[in-house]
Structures are given as structure tokens and as C-alpha cells.
Design a protein around this nucleic acid. Sequence first.
RNA 1: GGGCGCUUAACUCAGCGGCUAGAGUGCUAUCCUCACACGGUAGAAGUCACUGGUUCAAAUCCAGUAGCGCCCACCA
Length: 975
Amino acid sequence: MPTELSKQYDPREAQQKWLALWDERGYFHARPDENCEPFCVVIPPPNVTGALHMGHALNNTLQDVLVRWRRVQGYDALWMPGTDHAGIATQAVVEKRVREEEGKSRHDLGREELVARIWRWKDQYEARILGQLKQLGASCDWARTRFTLDEVCSRAVRQTFFAMFRDGYIFRGKRLVNWDAQLQTSVADDETYTENVQGGFWTFKYPVKGTGEFIRFSTTRPETMLGDTAVAVHPSDPRYQHLIGKLVTIPLVGRDIPIIADGLLVDPALGTGCVKVTPAHDPNDYACGLRHKLPMINILNADGTINKEGGKYAGLERSVARDEVTKDMEALGLFEGREDRAIPLKFSDRSKTSIEPLLSDQWFVKMADRDDGKPGFAQTAMDAVTSGKVKIFPERYAKSYLDWLGEKRDWCISRQLWWGHRIPIWYVRCPEEALTTAFAGRQDVTWRRDEDNDQWLVCALEDLPDDVLGPQYPLRRDPDVLDTWFSSALWPHSTLGWPDSTPELRHYYPTSVLVTSRDIITLWVVRMVITGLYNVGDVPFRHVYIHPKILDGFGETMSKMKGNGVDPLDIIELYGADALRFGMVHLATENQDSKLPVSNVCPHCGALVSVKREHMYLRTKKLTCPECKKAFRPGGPWPSPDPELPTAKQGSEKFEQGRNFANKLWNAARFLLLNLEGYTPGALRLEELPTEDRWILSRLATTTKEVTEHLEGFHFSDVARAVYDFTWSEFCDWYVEMSKGRLRDEASRPQAQRVLAGVLDTILRLVHPVMPFVAESIWQALGEAAFERGLPSPEPSPESVVIAPWPSFPAEWRDAATEKRIARMQDLVRAVREIRNRYGVDTKTPVDVLVRCDDALAGDFRRLEPFVKTLANVGTLECGPSVTKPPQSAGTVHPEFEGYVSLRGLIDPEAEAKRVEKQIAEKRKHLQATQGKLSNESFVSKAPPEVVEQQRALVAELQGQIQVLEENLRELRQG
RNA sequence: GGGCGCUUAACUCAGCGGCUAGAGUGCUAUCCUCACACGGUAGAAGUCACUGGUUCAAAUCCAGUAGCGCCCACCA
């Protein structure tokens, strides 16, 4: 029963109960309804590697706010959930576990077994992540949950790759990879580490042909000289101007290479100012090689020995070749010296041997414009934004999107991993007839010639058996997998069933809005636009909303290692899911970062101990709680629990506002429910309502309009603020207080109940997208006591706030005159309270108040007299034009009236006089400034007339107030 | 190195050309009054980073300076 509502809102109980109820009733399940306008959001799929962090909490809260709002607005709302297989990250986590628990490497397990292990890991963590999202209150359509590596997504990936390959958007190209010569495999960047090792810095010289001159250069890897294809100097370096365009000979291999000018590669201040260029074995040289169309000579075999390009050095180990090369150069008199130097060197995580940058064949998606008339991918994506088909909020992020695309850099999509979508390419050496015969009439196989390697590249929609061409032409499948972002790029349409034309795809695509963070605009947003346009023929979403990034109290990124992160689940436990959500919505401003100070929660007493810089990176092993003086271990990525010292969870006081707000709402509802006895539903006629009712309805109508507009413009912080301010500062602080007397009066009670119930009903609808749990709790309780309610006419209430229609009120409800009337009364009440406080007059002792004002105002105050009397505990209230300041009273001046509180025996005339003097001084200063403006001829002539008028009115007002204050002062001094 | 952003009360942030610059937290005083102490009432607290400029008018627009941060590229 309603009267049993506890004094404090218990989020935990509510969360359990309503999650189950919502799920059971299927509120979040969407069925494509042609007669209903769709609103669709696809979740940025979280990685299955670990737990959700604060960024996820923010991202998903904002999506949920939008989806819940649109759903109750009557849209056919679908929020598509799912997770990402996150190639490298997931494989690395599982490999690490296998290594730690079994001491085995992935090579010990083999590809199949490792992938099987990762699938098991994925099932476990996917369940955990989805569970966390549910705890947050995310209103996803869980029945549609997808995974970027599941069958549905795989089919889309296969189809996309096949079509892009067939259409010539996917091509094979060269790229430098990290080559592990011991394991004879390339390794991903994440699998390497850099160490400073003692190395050499050699200086050599090459003879410049036909000049007798030499050009000097330095290197840390002399053996790469065998693969040099140019020497570069800075275009504006005066020392070498005359040599640009000349040829030099590499003596050891007898190759002639040009001297080129390259401002990007060469820093004239470093070394000799000349750089040898080895495009096949150095990332910078590679870029330079592309710019100058230099030959790229690979001098290494897979095992790290020098290949046939190295001439007489062929077959030598790298290090041996280095010595030999140096020795031979010295013998030729071309060696100038060597100095010891610490050199950063990349190593492979697994073999611990040094990484060799090696040019290898990789797969790319072509971004640049094409010469065959088909659109270039980069351009189509740029057009989508410049034409406004995709709108980015805040607008400034459109610039990063366009800038990045403007480079039109090809997208390398092959990764040397085992976990992911395997590239559907088979290599075979055979005459083409073998292919045409075997695949005659098949649309699902296509092939292209790879002249460099004398082979065919065969792409197929379904896996091809190795012997499909017969035993003499075995197929070899590409071992690599696709970049994770390749499958993520298809997410908005693959999750809806593409390549099939499903009802979902037809109805919900393009989706409505994508909510994400700015660091993946280029990795993800751009690529979704490209594939959406290519596969479906339309953009994937109409709007992109980029939310801020959450940083710690010092403005640093949060990370487990630093120990400055906050676990959303801890916040839910400590403050409730609604508090977490309110906090997230509240910090979502237009700003690009938002700081969230972090605290350790004392495991003994729950006190918050703020995390300081020196606590980070596990530098502090033990902290003492300032409250209970007991010791604990600060939160962080501790590998195991400490038996001696309990570890703190991490929290933040930022969420107290949301928790308190939920409690405030709860108690406002409690108040109403305790006063609903005898409630009967009934229609309200605006014109018959008393001032206070028209006032709260006017404020409610304004708030509703504002909240709706803030949601439409993605101004989330303003949404939270508007709902909070109205509920707390207007409804609770004033209207509820004003209703107390009316509820005790038999005659006015029914109407007060109806308005209170109606306003609370609307507040719940407005609060629901942000704080669904507390809204539902109150909604259900209210439903028992006042099932039929509403504004202006009562209706049976929907069975859940989750499906309660979004409110909107006629513009006439907003009533500026009434709002002004109440504001004036509030000013009077506040002034009386201030005087009461100042003189320490107990709230239980009534004071007499006199107000000098015109007749109209006096009439107003008389109508509102009961409120003035109860809100400020006023004994007698006298008002009118003939009122004079009583002796021994304190006063207040207002633009429209003067108020006096009689303080017989309490007043300190001297203190009061000083106060009045101070006020006079302030008003005079203000008056002077205002008059100054008005005496400025150009202000009067150039400023808009209403601004000038405003200032004139202000002058009159101030003069009046000063006059009153001066009279009061005289009276105080005389009396 | 390129791009973007931030600097307003003790802290976290609103305000984006025209009120005597606001909120939440914290602080001070007071009140456990029959919705709420996760509360009420009132109060104190700001050279709007600095220097110039534009404008009748600048926290707000422009330029520069300093500090902080994010993203991207890179460190022969």
C-alpha cells in the first residue's frame, strides 16, 4: 500500500523488480510496423574483452535516453544491441590467460584450438557485458542481440568482401609489417614492444656519379644499404642543392640510385642532413618511396637472411651481413666512422627477437577516386556529410571527419591474427581454364590475376575445398583475418539482416542516430558511411552525436593501470542506476572532455577518500581512512585480493546529486500518496483554477517544451537540469508547500489532489528517459492510489511509465502574468525569511508584515495571503498604498513594492542602518553605471530601442528604491 | 609535428554579444516543523587565465601569450 513507502528510496529493489517486469512484458521488443515512423539506434558494440567502463555507461545512457523518449513519443523504436569480437584485443587476452594458466603459446595450441578457446571466452564475457547493460537499464531489443562474428554478420562480411573484390575496391598491395624472423610471421603492433638497446650509428659516403664528389649519410642499420633506392636531402638545404637529381652508385651492389629532395623525410639539422632511403625496410622511407615512386627492394628472406637482391651477401644472417657490409665499405674507403648510441628497437612479444620491418602483401580497400567512373569511397563519404544527408553534432566534428577523409588513404584490412573473419581468398597456380571450367556458371566465385607472384587470387562467397580444382592445382587459403573494423563498418545494416531485404532492413534503415565518441570517428563512423552507401545505397544514419570523453579529476584519461577509473557497477551499487544515469546525462555538455573526480570508497565505513595523483599507478599501497582511521588498499588493477588489507572500490561524489534527486522525487510522491485519501478523478478547467495551479501548470508546460527541445538538439545536460530544477525548485519547494493548506481544507482538497497528481504524473513521464527506475516505482504506486489522473482531463494510466506517452501542452498554458504574480510573492516570502534569519527570529514565532504597493498588487497579495502567511510564518499581512514603515522594523525594497517586518524589541537600529547604507551605496553605484550608459550618445542612437528603454526603466526603478531606502535610513537614525 | 578543445566561486561545470554572472558539491548560521537530514531556511564566496583588438556594449566575437588536455601522425 502507498502509505508503506519507506522514507528513503531503495534503488536496488526497484532495479530488480522493474527490469524483470519490463522484460516480461516485452516493452523493448520492436516489430517493424509500416504505419509507424521508425526510430532506430544501433549500439556501438562493446568489445567482448572485459567489463564496461565509464565511457560505456555514458554512451549507453545517452542512447537509452533517446530511445526511451522516442518510444513514448510514439515512434516504432528499436535499439539494436550486440558486441564486437575485437580481433587483437580479445585474442591477446585469451592468449595471455593460456600462457599464464597453462604455460602454452598460441602456437602450442594451434589455430583451431585457440579460436575455440576464444569462443568460449566470448560466450562468458558477452553474457557479462549484456548483463551490465541491462543493469544500467538499457532498453535494447535483447532478442535481436548480434555479435560481429556470428552467422548473420559473417554473411554480410563475406558478401561485402566479395563484391568489393569483384568491383575492384579491394586490392592486394604492399605494406610494411612487423616481421618476426624467428617465428617467420608478421606480428601486430600490439604484439611488439620497444626497448632502448646499445647500437651503432655509422657514417658512410656514396660517390656521386660524374662529379667526383661524395655524399655522406648516417644509419643505424648498414645492411639495409643493399636495398637503398635513393638518397634524400632537404629541398632547401644549400649544401646539397647542386646534387639534387644526380645519381650515386651503391658500391656493394653496383646499383645507381638518384639523389632526391624530400622535405618530409629529411631534417637538415640531423646527422649529415642526408638520408639513405630503403623503402622496403623502413616506414618513413616507405612513405618517401611512395611519394617519389621509388623502386622497393626487399632484401630479406622470411628467416631473416639476406636474399638474392643482396648479391654476394645473399644467405647471410642480418647481423653478419651488417658486419660484412661495414667491412667492405671500409675497404673501399667509404666508411667514415661509428659511434655508440642507444637506439629504440622493436621486439616481438613472443619470440623476444628484434622486429624487422618488411614489405609484404596485404589487402586494402581503395579509398581514392577511380578512373573507371565508379565513385571513390572517400568521396562518397565526404559527400554524405557535406550534402547534409548525415549531420554531425556538435558540428565541429564534421571537420575531423572531412579532414581525415580528404587524405583518401587506403584502408589496410588484413591482420595477422587468428581471431576474426578469415579473408575469403584462395591462391592457386594454374591455367585460367582450370578456373573457368571448375566454376562455370557460378556467380559466387570470382578471380583475378596476381602477376607479381604468378598466381590467381580467387574469392568466393562460400568456403572452397582445397582440391576444388583437382589434386594438381591445390588451393591455399590466405591465413590472415580482416581488420575488426571491417565487420563493425557493416553493423548498421548487417544487424538488420542485409544482404537479405528483410522487413527490418526496409523499415529501420537508415537508422536515426549514432551515439559515439570522437576517437572512433575515423575508424568507425567514416567506414559505416562508406559501406552503407556501397551495400545498401543509403547512409547508415541521419545523425551522429559525439559525446564528451570522461577524464579523471586531473584531466587524465582513466585506465585500470593508473587506478583512476570508476566501475559503473560500483556506482550502481553505491548510488543506484538512476543516479549513475542522471550523472552521465548531466555531464554530457557540448564540451569535448568532462572531468570526473575519483574517490576510494573506504571498505570499512564507506567514506569517500579522493584519489590523488600520487596514489596512481599503484604507487600507494596503503591508505588510511580519515573518517574511521582504518587502513585499506586503494582501488586499482591488483592481481589478487590482499588477505591483510581490504581493497577499496572506487566511486565519485558526482553521483550524489542524482541519488538525492531520486530520493527527493520519491518523497514528493510519498507526500502526495499520504494525502490522496478521498481522491476522485476530475477534469480541470484552466480558467477556473486559482493562481497557484495556473502557475504550476504554466511552469510545467514551459519545462515540458524545454526538455523536448533539449532532447531534439542532443543537449543532454540541459535535459537533466531542466527536469531537476522544475521538480525540486518549483514543484517541491513551492507548489507542494502551497498545497499543504489546501489539502487540509475540505473544499479545495479535491482540486489540489488532482493538480498534484497530474503534475507528478507529467514529471514522471519527463524523468523516465533519464531515471526509469525511480519513475516506474512511483508510477506504479501512484497507479494504485490514483489510477485515473491527468492534465487537463483524467484518463486511466498506462500500465507502465515506459509506455506512457510523452507530454505536450497547449501554448496557452504558458502564462507570463501568472508566473510574474507568483514570482512577486516568492520575492516577498524570501525577503521576510531573510530578515527573520538575520534577526534570529525563530520560525515558530509569527512576524507581522506590512507592504506598501499599489492597489492592484495589494489585491494580488491578499489573494495569495494564505501562502505568504504559511511560507514565511507571517502573523498579520497588511498591504496597500497607504502603508507606512512602522517603527522598529526592517525593510526590503523591490521594484514593485516595499516590505517591512515589524521587529519590536528585536531590532538593532544601528546595524540595520548600516545595512541600509550599504544597500544605498550599491544601488547608487549601479545607478551611476546605468546613467553613464544612457549619457553615451552612441549607446542611445545605436543600441536597439528596447535595450535603451530597459536601461531607462532601470534608472527610474533604482531612483525610487534609493529614495525609499534613504527615508528608511532617516527613520532608523531618528527612532 | 598536424588538428581540436579547455582555462568562470574552494571543487565540478552552466552561461556563447545587452539583468547587479548562475547551478550542484563544499563552507557558515540555524532548524530532526506531521514528504524528504540523500532534507528545510538563510548566508558568505568570482580581476570570468593574461595582453591587445572589434563593438554603443565583451565572460561571450577576433588575434596573440601562458598553462592544461584530447585525437591523429611520428621520433633516420
